Amino acid sequence: MKVVNITFKFADGSPDETHPAVEGESVLDVALNNDIRLQHNCGGVCGCSTCHVYIEAGMDDLPEISDKEEDYIDRAVDPRINSRLGCQCVVQGNEDVVVTIPEQDFLGH
């Protein structure tokens, strides 16, 4: 079973955190399993934009973005070229992932 590290950076200035992730776990799963606050109003089924994150490294080893995910990212606050939904970023490769969690002072879509 492949294991990579996911480093979480926080827009609010909190210290970075790095946690292991096994193949098949999402960024959202790893965040929640390690008490990292990442909103997920839809329960992590690609039905909203609240688990919006920025992938700073490791994008090539994540699944390609789907049309549905892209539609929800368009509804997120301050979407960027490296925006993804944490629930859709499933570990599948060998490359470590670096994620920035933006400010979450909203309820989202």
Rank of each mutant, 00 (worst) to 15 (best):
V4C: 04
N5F: 04
N5H: 10
N5L: 07
I6F: 11
I6T: 08
T7E: 08
T7H: 05
F8W: 03
F10T: 02
F10D: 08
F10G: 00
F10Q: 01
D12I: 04
D12A: 05
D12G: 04
G13I: 02
G13P: 00
G13F: 00
G13A: 02
G13Y: 03
S14N: 15
S14H: 11
P15R: 08
D16P: 13
E17D: 10
T18K: 15
T18G: 12
H19T: 09
H19A: 10
P20K: 12
P20E: 07
A21W: 02
V22M: 13
V22W: 10
E23T: 09
E25D: 14
S26Q: 13
L28W: 03
L28N: 11
D29L: 00
N33C: 14
N34V: 08
N34I: 07
I36H: 09
R37D: 14
R37P: 07
R37G: 12
L38E: 13
Q39T: 11
Q39S: 15
Q39K: 13
H40S: 02
N41C: 06
N41T: 07
C42G: 01
C42P: 02
C42Q: 03
C42L: 06
G43P: 07
G43V: 06
G44L: 06
V45K: 15
C46H: 09
C46L: 08
S49T: 14
S49A: 15
S49R: 13
T50I: 00
C51Q: 06
C51F: 09
H52M: 02
V53R: 07
V53W: 03
Y54I: 00
Y54M: 02
Y54G: 00
Y54F: 01
Y54D: 00
I55R: 01
I55A: 00
E56P: 00
G58L: 03
G58C: 02
M59N: 10
M59E: 09
L62Q: 05
P63G: 12
P63I: 08
P63Q: 10
E64A: 13
S66V: 03
S66W: 04
K68M: 12
K68H: 06
K68R: 13
E69F: 13
E69Q: 15
E69I: 11
E70Q: 14
E70I: 06
D71S: 12
Y72K: 09
Y72V: 01
I73A: 07
D74T: 08
R75E: 03
R75G: 08
A76K: 15
A76I: 04
D78W: 11
N82Y: 06
S83N: 04
S83M: 02
S83E: 00
R84Y: 04
L85F: 14
G86C: 08
G86N: 10
G86H: 07
C87A: 14
Q88H: 09
Q88Y: 10
C89I: 05
V90K: 12
V91E: 04
V91C: 04
Q92W: 02
Q92C: 01
Q92A: 00
G93R: 03
G93S: 02
N94S: 10
N94P: 00
E95F: 05
E95H: 11
D96S: 07
D96C: 09
V97N: 00
V97D: 02
V98D: 05
T100F: 04
P102F: 03
P102N: 08
P102A: 05
P102Y: 05
Q104P: 01
D105C: 14
F106Q: 15
F106V: 15
F106L: 15
L107V: 10
L107R: 14
